[in-house]
Simulated scan of single mutants.
Amino acid sequence: MMTFSVPKMSCGHCMSAIEDKILDADEGADVQCDLDARQVAVDTVLDAAAIVAAIKAAGFEASAA
């Protein structure tokens, strides 16, 4: 499982948008958002760069946590 820091994730809508974009890229991914920590954990077949790109497509900057 990879974990990403998403500093501007601040609400349920943000989490939903991020999860949707990751699942668009890999429908079998397991996505767990932690709003308090502003982190997203992803178990996926994709590499970290693809997940960062998916999060960016949702409108958020992300980096490996």
Rank of each mutant, 00 (worst) to 15 (best):
M1T: 10
T3C: 05
T3K: 15
T3A: 12
F4C: 01
S5G: 01
V6G: 08
P7A: 09
K8T: 15
M9K: 11
M9D: 10
S10I: 03
C11D: 10
G12F: 01
G12S: 12
G12Q: 10
G12P: 04
H13Q: 13
C14I: 08
C14W: 05
M15K: 14
M15Q: 14
S16Q: 14
A17I: 01
E19Y: 06
D20M: 10
K21Q: 14
I22G: 10
I22L: 12
D24W: 00
D24E: 15
A25V: 02
A25L: 06
A25Y: 06
D26C: 04
E27L: 01
E27D: 14
G28H: 10
G28T: 12
G28Q: 13
A29E: 12
A29Q: 12
D30P: 00
D30H: 12
V31I: 10
V31F: 09
Q32S: 13
C33P: 03
D34A: 13
D34M: 08
D34S: 14
A37Y: 11
R38A: 09
R38C: 04
Q39K: 15
Q39G: 09
Q39P: 01
V40A: 06
A41M: 12
A41S: 15
V42G: 08
V42R: 02
V42M: 07
D43S: 14
D43I: 05
T44H: 10
T44R: 08
T44G: 07
T44N: 08
V45C: 00
V45A: 12
V45L: 00
V45E: 13
L46Y: 03
L46G: 02
L46R: 09
D47C: 02
D47S: 01
A48H: 06
A48I: 07
A49Q: 15
A50W: 03
A50H: 10
A50L: 02
A53C: 03
A53M: 02
A54Q: 09
A54M: 06
I55A: 06
K56E: 15
A57R: 03
A57C: 01
A57M: 04
A57F: 03
A58W: 02
A58H: 03
F60W: 07
F60A: 02
E61R: 07
E61V: 08
A62C: 04
A62Q: 03
S63T: 12
S63P: 00
S63M: 01
S63Y: 00
A64E: 14
A64N: 00
A64H: 00
A65V: 09
A65M: 01
